[in-house]
Amino acid sequence: MNSGLELIGCSVGYTEPLLQAELTVPHGQIVAILGPSGCGKSTLLASILGTVPVLAGKVVVGGIDVTSLPIHQRRVGMVFQDPLLFTHLTVAHNVMYGLRRSGMSKPQAAARASELLAWVDLQGYENRSPLELSGGQAQRVALVRALAPKPAILLLDEPYSALDADLRSRLAAEVSALLREEGVTAIHVTHDELEAGSITDTVVRISENRLIS
């Protein structure tokens, strides 16, 4: 089976090593990373994404060593705790953003954006401003926006923690089902053990500054 993500001898941190990581995630698997606050979960995701350099080791995404590649060439999708939708663009244009960057024509991108929005029950919201959406709707748009350009791996950094408990569990289950349906490799960082166990294939823990699968 192809590997979705490999962290080989990675030392992660801004200037001093915060975390040592050795991890292999098979293609199509959803892995949860659990750990207490401040243990380096988000820094690890930032290193995979490319906003924080790895101090040592290699990051391999979809079989390609991306360690020294800039973010826009890594094919890594990211969903943060906040949706971070571009508020000067419509909902559809947010989803089209990554599609247009990958070279898709405008009409094709618009059609694909409509399909993706329908996929998360947001058909008819294309021309709305992100400011008109509820928290759950905005997070679903952020998810399909990240998935639209078909990233090799999707990183989810506590994406439901800003939502209320009811919506959180419902959306987590929905998103998990969508990711499996599309066969997307995903890393889900959370501190909620229950959520981690219910929506992911594997749970990996960080302890004593080490992450080992």
């Binding site: 994404l49 826009h72 990211m78 906040d82 571009f86 508020t87 990240a146």
Partner: peptide, 26 residues
């Protein structure tokens, strides 16, 4: 202004200058 918007734009494939203006342009 949330600088993570530029990170999101980059993750969606935008080159650095475009990502910067997507986040900070408006």
């Amino acid at each position: 202004t949330d600088s993570r918007a530029a990170t999101v734009a980059s993750a969606l494939g935008a080159r650095p200058t475009r990502a910067f203006f997507t986040a900070y342009g408006p």
